[in-house]
Design a protein around this nucleic acid. Structure first.
Length: 469
RNA sequence: GCGCCUCUAGCUCAAUUGGCAGAGCAACAGACUCUUAAUCUGCAGGUUCUGGGUUCAAGUCCCAGGGGGCGUACCA
């Protein structure tokens, strides 16, 4: 059946518009209104001289009513395949059985489905097919479509929210000569004309702070970042991170910003600041609880710990709580490991865990009153780390010695330790004002607000091993 | 990386202690003028992920490989 496919089709209404605009029709009544809709044929019920179809567009499903009497090429119409794209023009009616329908007074095939669609009742249960053939999944898995619509709404809400607060969206390089701004293993690549090795960014942080040096006082980027690490329900090698920097602000300002933004976001996309994740309740309304990491840890292991605690004692505690560690770990790293293995897993949140050891936070400014610690916080929401933020290091000499300390641990075997970035130090030498910075994992935020358990469910095309012939 | 589980028709799933590989939907050919996953009749559809092995006989048991899932490690 070779049917000519037109180059365009004029749609007058979406399915959901038709359903709401004609909800007043009574059974068997015709509206007198002629409309044009387009979409995919998802169901077909052949009755002989009449046939019912269900047309789905991006908004809803609406029934088509075709009859031998009204519908041109009726034979062809009743032989359409599930999955075929149609453009239909006709009067809006309500059938005798009460279904709002478009009577097929004229129609055109807009694309033929040459492969048969999945089982119309069961859909696709094989997650591999769902991820690899997302173009089919989106049609047959309602939750999947909803999740990605919500993701889009989340992104546009965040953008307009930040814009309204005077933030400016910027784009910084994806290719980095030096991977920086986070502790992670990068992907590497090569530019032929320049003959230089480059890395895909693991974070946009250092470029964004250069922009604050440049005078853009409030900047943010929705940054796709790349980390060459394992894949799991919570990790995809490429993911989206929101980073923002605000001049003249400290980490407490950022805490207020995060709780305000996230709670308003929840209200917008979930209709409430009280949501449910994985069957558990979560109240996102501000203010969120705050507690220092040392307090939480000390309380958990029932022993007063601080950065002055002797390293032998910390090592003993690690052994005691079966937390693995390596010899080159300093007190700060040992404390962080202890906290992450013993305390963090039991937090549900939302809670701000504040003040981290300087040793594990090379870009965070020294705490104004606690020696050896920095002004940094992570928000734990639904038991997971939602964001990481701090008062930024602004002093170039301080930053240099932090980088040097990172170099040392790199030499000691830490492959993820940061590398000295001379140009970044040069930027700081021109002067960075007090600045608060934030990074939020957008994919995990979407998981939180869509109550999904796998990061693959919120990424349209997650990283998979390529199919083999 | 490591551990456990899994792979049967386009899709969703069966197949007893090892004994002729099946059903529903989709497709194909028909019937039917108000259906709602329509229904009914008929027909067709397979390298049971791949390669070895054990056996009279393997979808089923063993070995190796591949895909996928979950957990764990690294991490956000």
């Amino acid at each position: 059946m070779d049917r000519e496919i037109p180059f365009r089709f004029e749609v007058t209404n979406s399915a959901s518009e038709l359903l709401s605009e004609h909800s007043g029709l009574s059974e068997g009544e015709s509206s007198g209104v002629t409309v044009s809709v387009a979409g995919r044929l998802m169901l077909r019920r052949d009755q002989g001289k009449i046939v019912f179809g269900v047309l789905q567009d991006s908004t809803a499903r609406i029934q088509l009513f075709a009859s031998e009497k009204n519908t041109p090429d009726y034979e062809f119409f009743s032989n359409l395949h599930l999955g075929d794209w149609l453009g239909v023009t006709g009067e809006v009616i309500r059938t005798k059985r009460g279904e709002i329908s478009v009577r097929v007074d004229s129609w055109v095939c807009l694309a033929e489905a040459k492969r048969s669609f999945p089982d119309k009742w069961h859909g696709i249960s094989d997650t591999d097919i769902r991820y690899r053939q997302r173009y089919v999944d989106l049609w047959v898995t309602e939750e999947s479509r909803k999740t990605f619509i919500t993701r889009s709404r989340i992104l546009s809400f965040i953008r307009s929210w930040l814009d309204s607060k005077g933030f400016m969206e910027v784009e910084t390089p994806v290719f980095h000569p030096i991977p920086g701004g986070a502790a992670a293993r990068p992907f590497d690549t090569h530019h032929n004309a320049l003959d230089v090795d480059l890395f895909l960014r693991i974070a946009p942080e250092l470029y964004l702070k250069r922009l604050v040096v440049g005078g853009f006082e409030k900047v943010y980027e929705m940054a796709r970042v790349f980390r060459n690490e394992g894949i799991s329900t919570r990790h995809n090698p490429e993911f989206t991170m929101l980073e923002l920097y605000e001049a003249y602000a400290d980490y407490e300002d950022i805490m207020r910003l995060v709780e305000e933004m996230v709670s308003e976001l929840a209200l917008e996309v979930c209709g409430s600041t009280k949501i449910e994740y994985d069957g558990r309740e979560l109240d996102l309304s501000p203010p969120w609880e705050r507690s220092s990491m040392l307090d939480l840890l000390s309380q958990k292991i029932d022993k007063e710990i601080n950065i002055q605690t002797p390293i032998e004692e910390l090592r003993e505690l690690c052994k005691e709580h079966s937390v693995p560690f390596e010899d080159h770990y300093g007190p700060g790293k040992l404390i962080l490991e202890l906290y992450e293995k013993t305390t963090e897993p039991e937090l549900w949140g939302p809670i701000y865990v504040t003040d981290y050891p300087e040793e594990v936070s090379p870009l965070s400014r020294a705490h104004r009153s606690i020696p050896g610690m920095v002004e940094r916080f992570e928000a734990i929401v639904a038991g997971r780390e939602l964001c990481n933020a701090f008062s930024e290091v602004i002093d170039p000499d301080d930053q240099r010695s932090r980088f040097n300390a990172q170099e040392k641990s790199r030499d000691a075997g830490d492959e993820e330790a940061m590398v000295v970035d001379e140009d970044y130090l040069r930027a700081l030498e021109y002067g960075l004002p007090p600045t608060g910075g934030l990074g939020i994992g957008i994919d995990r935020l979407v998981m939180l607000l869509t109550d999904t358990q796998a990061i693959r469910d919120v990424i349209l095309f997650p990283t998979l091993r390529p199919e083999q012939e």
